[in-house]
């Protein structure tokens, strides 16, 4: 698939139609051969296409349709879902929670990505050096990835507990805070706390990909740069960063798509509270569908989220193509 794509791109780049160069007499035969090859290409594509249609196409289409229906528990039994046009969208957008959820989704995404990326990059750069136990420590970094999210959120809830949590005990012992801050119970801190936990969860992903990208930069370039006097920050600025950029854009865009829809962390830590201060579009959609049984409105919110993700997905594909071309 990737091969076909690349060839198509290359052909487009040349802007010379291959068939034109063929002598008229042999044109027919060659076309037949090419047609057969096209058919076999198509056959190879079929399993993938069927998979995509069944597991991505159908659910997405179904979800879009659901957004326009009054879809409730009754629908599951009777199969009847009256068409309500834009009523679901009107209801979710005019709800007082929507603005807050949208803002929280934006803050949550930007905060998480910035934190994950910067920390991830710093750690990846650090592990480029050779030192004892490098490999062991790098694999330990993957731990947050290995722990089920429901478990890690339960542990974080204990850590962040206002009265008896480890964090407040620690800060109190150091005389860093006077009143114990309510990390998960104050409306001004809860979103921050949830972002921090999500950063912790996202670091392994960023480190893994960025470290891989760093490995691809040839050592000779640094040696050459060092000869020209570029070391440390300047080496990073002029060698590492430009060569890492394709990987960076991939990490960032994937990160956004990955973060916009985060649900489990929020459900595990605050369930959208206190007073909706950590409510995001994803958690609100979940609540509408699975707690209030209003699947139509839940789907409408979900579709809004899909559109947001889609914008970044397109950005990702473009960034990816640029990376391939380079």
């Amino acid at each position: 698939m990737a091969d076909v794509l690349r060839r198509a791109v290359r052909a487009k780049g040349r802007t010379v139609p291959i068939t034109d160069s063929a002598p008229a007499g042999r044109k027919l035969g060659r076309l037949g051969k090419r047609g057969r090859r096209g058919q076999s290409h198509l056959l190879f594509l079929l399993p993938a296409l069927a998979y995509m249609v069944a597991f991505f196409g159908y659910p997405v289409v179904k979800n879009v349709v659901m957004g326009f229906q009054h879809y409730t528990t009754t629908t599951f039994y009777t199969g009847q879902a009256p068409w309500v046009g834009l009523a679901n969208y009107r209801a979710v957008i005019s709800s007082s929670v929507f603005d807050k959820a949208l803002l929280n989704t934006a803050l949550f995404t930007v905060g998480s990505i910035a934190g994950q990326f910067l920390t991830g990059l710093a750690i990846a750069l650090f592990f480029r050096r050779r030192f004892p136990l490098n490999g062991v420590m790098r694999s330990l970094l993957l731990l947050p990835w290995l722990v089920p999210l429901i478990v890690s959120s339960a542990v974080w809830r204990w850590i962040l507990d206002q009265d008896n949590g480890v964090l407040n005990r620690f800060l109190g012992a150091l005389y860093l805070v006077q009143d114990r801050p309510g990390w998960l119970t104050s409306t001004s801190l809860a979103l921050f706390a949830v972002i921090v936990v999500n950063i912790w969860i996202g670091i392994p992903f960023n480190v893994a990909i960025l470290y891989g990208g760093l490995q691809d930069i040839p050592e000779e370039l640094y040696e050459a740069a060092a000869l020209d006097g570029a070391t440390g920050w300047r080496a990073f600025r002029h060698v590492t960063w430009p060569l890492l950029r394709p990987v960076v854009s991939v990490v960032l865009v994937l990160g956004v798509v990955y973060t916009v829809k985060v649900l489990d962390v929020i459900l595990g830590l605050t369930n959208g509270g206190p007073a909706n201060s950590t409510q995001t579009i994803a958690s609100q959609s979940y609540q509408l569908s699975f707690q209030q049984f209003d699947f139509g409105q839940g789907a409408a919110l979900g579709n809004i989220l899909i559109v947001i993700s889609l914008v970044f997905a397109v950005l990702y594909l473009r960034a990816n193509r640029r990376a391939v071309e380079q």
């Binding site: 997405v60 179904k62 979800n63 659901m66 569908s289 789907a299 993700s309």
Partner: peptide, 13 residues
């Protein structure tokens, strides 16, 4: 990743 509420739709089919 782009289809979070698809889980929901997976029920629906």
């Amino acid at each position: 990743r782009t289809t979070p509420t698809v889980a929901l739709a997976l029920l629906a089919p």
